[in-house]
Design a protein around this nucleic acid. Sequence first.
DNA 1: ACCTGAACACCGTTCAAGT
DNA 2: ACCTGAACACCGTTCAAGT
Lengths: 251, 251
Amino acid sequence: MVRVRDAAGVPATRDEAAGSMLSPARKPRRPRSSLNREVILDAALAIAEREGLDGLTFAALGAELGAHSTAVYRHYRDKDELVLELIDELRARSYGVHEPGPDWRADLRAIGGHIREHYLRYPRLAQAMSARSTRRTTEFANVEFALDALRRAGLGDEDAVLWLRLFGNYVRAMAAHEAAVRDLDPALKAKDHAGWQVDAAGLDAAAFPNVTRLATSMLPMDDPRIFDLGLELVLDAIEERGRVTRAAALR
Amino acid sequence: MVRVRDAAGVPATRDEAAGSMLSPARKPRRPRSSLNREVILDAALAIAEREGLDGLTFAALGAELGAHSTAVYRHYRDKDELVLELIDELRARSYGVHEPGPDWRADLRAIGGHIREHYLRYPRLAQAMSARSTRRTTEFANVEFALDALRRAGLGDEDAVLWLRLFGNYVRAMAAHEAAVRDLDPALKAKDHAGWQVDAAGLDAAAFPNVTRLATSMLPMDDPRIFDLGLELVLDAIEERGRVTRAAALR
DNA sequence: ACCTGAACACCGTTCAAGT
DNA sequence: ACCTGAACACCGTTCAAGT
């Protein structure tokens, strides 16, 4: 990341919307109990939406709230606690409640797609979202939804927890990976992709026959078709597992 | 991350192995051309091995080299350049050259497993390793190896680049995800897992029948069986694709 | 030409002091 | 009780000065 020494040579004005050229910038004190977790979370959301998670610093939070940057510490123990709550709030607003349809496959496909879109929208949060559990209502509702679909597919309890893990990890891992690639500095990304083709084409064709022949046909790392291609394989396997389970039950 | 104010109350001695109580710590200057990319990379590797990537700072690098922390800038443009080269060097030492065997499936399984083990060994680097391409010999050799296996499976060129992308992304994304979870602060991880069971068990059984019933059976996020379970699905799909292609060619 | 010293623009976090 | 000011322990990075 590049740090900026001075936004544009001109130092930023100290009191943006304050006015009052009279006294030497008497900074108004924040009213007594106007700060609470909800207000803070709203401000954090606005920043994340506007500038991405990288912009979410205590300094930016203070500016957004019109409060001192350290004032947040009275309401959140540390940044981790704030980020976890932010993740859950975003999730709740993004997918809301999923209503099961008649087709378990369509249900799993839908929730997988929603999670992917959500990660691609907040790539800076994707890593944390994919590896942490927030243990809030929205998360439990999603798990219930997926387990219900797996049961309808014909899986027993033991299979359901196993395939839920594969389905969930696949969706989170692949979506987080796609988001991470998409989020790379565009210049870097272009260099990675274009440079690959040039370097690959320059290799010894005898030692690298496939790479040299296919150098220009290689798909970009974040090709959007890949997610669905693999997801259908997982759904196929779940369907087959359900078939086997049902057949065994009849015998 | 928790910052330490003072390692143990006692300030670290300024010249550790120097000795010379006489003059006020005359710091020896680093010999003229003793610094180069190779020496720096060795030091970086030693630090990464010992303290993880978090410990790899310019300050630590300077201490390891017995040089000023900014001296590295003469040899690497920035930290990104250093890390990319480190990634490639680690990869070269870790898997070396893969020799194709008689069975393409075994070959793909082997390289996938090696990549996963490598990521789990350097979890702090896994994110960067999974999303960036280094465009060095080792990387091209791996791609050649995988493309060759896909050709032997019976895939045409167009299918080969498509399924290479799925195979590669699956391996990198799932391994990076597993590494990220494994790398979480153990206390956090235990809280996430144990807390989940407690919170889930406390839910309304009518609204969350599956979650409450299976709360204690849920698999940990980084269950080591999941990677192989999904990998075999990908390999199955490749095998089927090869079968179809061969059959079409006969007609 | 290569390395060092001193600074800079940021981070998260702590804690005594104000109101 | 709640917010502010001032500091701290780190980060990566720049650049003029030494040798």
